[in-house]
Design a binder for these strands. Structure first.
Lengths: 156, 156
DNA sequence: GTAGATGCAAAAAGTTTGCGGTAAG
DNA sequence: CTTACCGCAAACTTTTTGCATCTAC
């Protein structure tokens, strides 16, 4: 198993980061969003971190260069990055814990608008995924598959 | 596409529920946990809901029969149910939003203890999942695969 | 110059915890 | 009778929001 970052040299990473920050700036102009120093700093911090950081962690990194930045700005900006496709949320359902009484193997359809969750089953998928030998340093307990999209009630 | 519950008649569902509540009671005895009316009511409420409810929603259901129950008890009990394997959390990472600057298709290893997230890639998996035609009433935007387990630092 | 972004502080939302009373085993 | 559970209230964590100020365009 290899992660993206382990495959790259520092110089390659830095080049990639520059490219992504520039792409972000262009996307902002296209969307009519201002390219502020705070926004640049936040996407740079996100790209420099391999830990899938929380807003608070990004805030700590950015604060080294922008001591006056506010945590609220970090929250707002990270959401903006996701909206324009320059980042993604690992946790679209983070706002509250959701429980399932169905303990049989199955998958979920998640509406990213209303957070509705529907059970589905792709036959054989769970077995196939369970056979994947992920990493020797990781004791595998289960696999979760979420199909993300917009449900019929949330469509325009 | 069909969900589990749509395949079952009301009578079948009720029978299944009874069976699960009984299994839960036995599991409690095996674990030395008390089988209280509150706990029974909470697992019944969870099993009667197809909506992957939050604690608050379970609380509202249970309150109809147990008006004095506390929301804290619902939280505690749902966590207990997950711990003993009688329910599962759809959202093991719900405590805070996590962001990823890597917008290329990839999967995640999630440590259920420390909530560390590692990038991995199973070649071809994302393409295979994108080909699945989930449901006509659902506009598919993406697929998320999380392998859950215990990372090396959290192992005893 | 103006619309939109930021910083601050307060509020909101969700979850956890300490504690005294209560009930299951 | 004892242990562990419950209800209550307070604390805590994370995220959102209102508003005045500031800045990118």
């Amino acid at each position: 198993m290899e992660t993206r970052l382990q495959l790259r040299s520092d110089a390659q990473q830095e080049a990639y980061r520059q490219k992504r920050v520039e792409a972000f700036a262009e996307r902002c102009r296209a969307e009519g969003l201002a390219v502020t120093p705070q926004r640049r700093a936040i996407i740079e911090a996100l790209l420099s971190s391999a830990s899938h950081p929380r807003a608070e962690e990004v805030y700590e990194i950015v604060r080294e260069l922008h001591p006056n930045i506010s945590l609220a700005t970090v929250h707002r900006t990270l959401e903006t990055l996701c909206r324009i496709g320059e980042a993604q949320k690992v946790t679209p359902l983070h706002t509250s814990a959701r429980y399932d009484g169905n303990v049989e193997p199955h998958q979920h359809l998640v509406c990213v608008e209303c957070h509705r969750i529907l059970d589905v089953e792709v036959p054989g998928l769970q077995e196939q995924l369970s056979d994947i030998n992920k990493a020797k340093d990781f004791k595998l307990l289960g696999v979760s598959v979420e199909f993300h999209g917009i449900c019929k009630d949330c469509r325009p």
